[in-house]
Design a protein around this nucleic acid. Structure first.
Lengths: 223, 223
DNA sequence: CTGTATCCTCAAGGATACTG
DNA sequence: CAGTATCCTTGAGGATACAG
């Protein structure tokens, strides 16, 4: 991005954060170190050259740093201070502009990645717990294998016992994720269906923390 | 800007605010309604077509609205809620990344516009008060004509008595404006010189509020 | 796996002229 | 004054191949 040539904090902020993809790259780093190829999961559509260029610039600007040899990228101490900035922007959108997802935004894989980052690991039993998601729009299923140490998205059947099977249209699960509707309501009206032992279905609600912006979305809706 | 296709508040925020010039257009509106041609003063380098395109988009997105017939643009109620967002971004820059102005950023006209927006009008006497600024780098002078109702930048001699004449290098006045140094220190070491009656020179300090980010810059420097 | 290098295309955006 | 229309350029960014 060409500089604005203005000695102004707002202009500098726009230069540092305003490039296409940059804010999303920062969002990805909010959950810990990310390796080069990992970025592409959360940033569908970004090209490798743009990603490399953005990472180089963020590194040059002292916002991120490279960990040793293929360990990926993290925030520097300055980069860490961006957390409340990203939060403020997201909260503003969550309060004033967010609507239901548009058809072009109904990416189930991305949704699963989002969800996987908001599992309350403290609530998990020891060992592996597996969830299976079935979307009304497609036959493909997606699994979540969850442990205390790590939660990951599986596009192939992990061939492990499934604790809870979740069936829903992508749109409805996005709405629950974003706090546009409560899981309870979605279950009551049947747009989301859980299968599994009653005990597991009950604990399921404790595992799922949903989007960190969901409370903001709910507060705005209550207004 | 092409959409990211993500149902995510951060992504939506980047779409709404991340276009080149958009954040600066919003900054301009922070001080009240702005007419089409007025934007160009605070946005040197923007092209008319880009400005028109950005304004149309911000209007479509419900952030700004057009006042009747050549009265310019203002925030909508939603647009008003962007104030703390802009503040957060600016504060982050002011705290963590701002340095002294770079040579390419030493635009005296823009500095005078910035300063004119931060005059404490309550402190002005009734009638017109005129300041004259002389920059070490150039022979051209710039005047500030100040009244309770309005403060404006004059590039031509208003031919009125000057209360205080300010002489400084552009860089030093920018540093004072941004809180990188105090006016007191700049006067003490002679980088900024005031001419005028002692009473006016004393009151001058009360008129000048400098950048709203200056306190943040000072707080960061004290750390 | 972690990038870099190259090429090529398209569209954002700058300059200018023109109109209500 | 407040834009719109047109033209043209440049550089951002996508695709692909390649290298450590």
């Amino acid at each position: 991005m060409r500089s604005y040539g203005q000695y102004c904090p707002v202009a500098k902020g726009a230069e540092l954060l305003g490039d296409r993809w940059t804010l999303l790259i920062i969002r990805e780093l909010l959950f810990g170190p990310v390796r080069f190829n990992e970025f592409e999961r959360g940033l569908p559509g970004i090209s490798r050259s743009v990603l490399a260029s953005r990472l180089r610039r963020l590194e040059r600007d002292g916002i991120i740093e490279r960990l040793g040899d293929g360990e990926g990228y993290t925030f520097t101490q300055v980069g860490e201070t961006l957390r409340p900035v990203v939060r403020t922007i997201g909260d503003w959108v969550a309060t004033w502009v967010i609507e239901d997802p548009r058809p072009a935004e109904l990416d189930p894989e991305l949704l699963m990645l989002f969800i996987s980052r908001h599992i309350d690991r403290e609530e998990l039993p020891t060992g592996k717990t597996v969830l299976c998601f079935e979307f009304a729009e497609e036959t493909r299923r997606i699994w979540l294998t969850m442990e205390r140490q790590d939660v990951s998205v599986c596009l192939e059947d992990p061939c492990l016992p499934v604790a809870v099977r979740v069936r829903a249209p992508v749109r409805e699960l996005y709405r629950v994720y974003m706090g546009r509707t409560s899981l309870r309501d979605a279950l009551d009206n049947g747009s989301v269906v859980l299968d599994g032992l009653p005990a597991d279905r009950r604990r399921f609600e404790g595992w799922m923390k949903w989007s960190s912006f969901a409370p903001t979305v709910q507060a705005a809706a209550a207004r």
